[in-house]
């Protein structure tokens, strides 16, 4: 084995510390036996129990996950279509305008997306009587709008690197375009689809502004709940909740690792 020099090692450690030290403090604080953050008083599981009792927080978390799932899937679906149609080599008048049109939502501030969608839905309701209530689907639409551009960019980058001769070869061997799409293109861009999906999922999970505008009664998301707690000091419950989330993520990643290794 090659020996790693001390400088390399220290840079490595610094980098990882930068990434994970804040999370470490969140986990440490969630076992703290006090309501005051930042001051260590003793070890306890008390906060975890109070998280399980706080129905509002759990309900908001469930709602956020629901919205994140729906909007990530929707954003990948739309983003995939947009990427495929804009990554074609054929050119026509106005194509570059259309290409750029898919990226512009990245530059629109959330507050404008949120408010303009709210105005749109209110107008639609008064004009057509639809949508009647604004459930989690409506918030998801806002999140799809905000994240579809990121997904599109991710997938298109991969598609543009795609070797066109493979497609031509398949065509020459008599493959239909659907077969080419499903069996050649999708396997090649699978990573970027997954990346896009996770990106959209995360964007949706963190969003505060769009959800604040679009959420209807009883449809509060997790970030909205957390911010409304912040006035009286960051609640230690939030530490505990974050620890629980990280544990779940860690377990999922470990499982995924073992499953993929067994296959090989």
């Amino acid at each position: 084995m090659r020996k790693v020099s001390k400088t390399t090692l220290s840079f490595l450690l610094l980098g990882y510390a930068f990434l994970y030290l804040p999370l470490f403090f969140v986990i440490l604080n969630s076992f703290n036996d006090t309501e005051v953050p930042g001051i260590w008083k003793g070890f306890s599981f008390q906060v975890f129990l109070s998280v399980l009792e706080d129905k509002d927080l759990l309900y908001a978390a469930l709602n956020s996950f629901k919205i994140a799932l729906i909007s990530a899937t929707g954003a990948v679906f739309l983003g995939l279509l947009a990427a495929i149609s804009t990554a074609t080599k054929s050119s026509f008048w106005g194509k570059s305008l259309l290409d750029r049109g898919t990226i512009i939502p990245i530059f629109i501030p959330d507050i404008i997306i949120g408010f303009s969608l709210l105005m749109l839905f209110v107008f639609m309701k008064s004009a057509f009587g639809f949508p009647k209530g604004r459930g989690c689907i409506i918030v998801s639409i806002g999140h799809i709008l905000a994240s579809v551009a990121y997904v599109c960019v991710t997938i298109r980058a991969k598609l543009l690197m795609f070797d066109k001769s493979i497609e031509d070869a398949a065509k020459a061997l008599g493959a239909k375009s659907l077969t080419i799409f499903l069996q050649i293109k999708i396997p090649i861009i699978k990573e970027s689809i997954l990346t896009g999906w996770l990106l959209a999922f995360t964007l949706s999970l963190d969003d505060l502004v769009i959800a604040s505008f679009l959420a209807s009664p009883g449809n509060v998301t997790l970030p909205m709940r957390i911010f409304s707690y912040a006035r009286f000091g960051i609640d230690p419950k939030i530490n505990a909740f974050a620890t629980m989330l990280m544990t779940i993520v860690f377990i999922c990643l470990t499982l995924a690792y073992f499953i993929s290794r067994r296959k090989k």
């Binding site: 604040s212 505008f213 009664p217 909205m224 409304s228």
Partner: peptide
Amino acid sequence: DTGDDNDILEAKLLAA
């Protein structure tokens, strides 16, 4: 439900 911003509350109130 709880929020944290008077301005967003007002915008929502006036719009819907």
